[in-house]
């Protein structure tokens, strides 16, 4: 499912709202998560999961093709940890199968 399909499905349940408003809602949700993370913040959505930022220290890496040493700068990467309820729900398909 893509973002636009998600928007259309939500819109189908809300005939009183314009698609462009649903688009704004969905976009706002992800934009806010992004800007919170960009400032080092944590986003916690109970039952869904938590987004946070991990720090990767600078290290000396290797070009796998040539074997040359290259400096890799320190960087920050976004991370998602699945919430308990969501983990249970995705895994429950396994029990049914």
């Amino acid at each position: 499912m893509t973002k636009s399909e998600l928007i259309l499905e939500i819109a189908a349940a809300h005939p009183n709202l314009l698609i462009k408003d649903i688009d704004l809602i969905v976009s706002t949700i992800f934009d806010e998560i992004e800007s919170s993370l960009a400032q080092g913040g944590r986003v916690e959505l109970r039952g869904f999961g938590a987004f946070f930022v991990k720090n990767r220290k600078a290290r000396t890496g290797r070009n796998p093709r040539t074997g040359d040493a290259v400096d890799v700068h320190e960087k920050y990467v976004p991370f998602f940890k699945t919430g308990k309820e969501l983990r249970k729900r995705t895994n429950s398909q396994m029990d049914e199968a």
């Binding site: 992004e34 800007s35 993370l37 960009a38 400032q39 960087k75 920050y76 990467v77 976004p78």
Partner: peptide, 14 residues
């Protein structure tokens, strides 16, 4: 995460 999200997190934090 998409490359865009990775970039904005990394640039913002740096």
């Amino acid at each position: 995460p998409s490359q865009m999200l990775k970039n904005s997190v990394n640039e913002g934090m740096t």
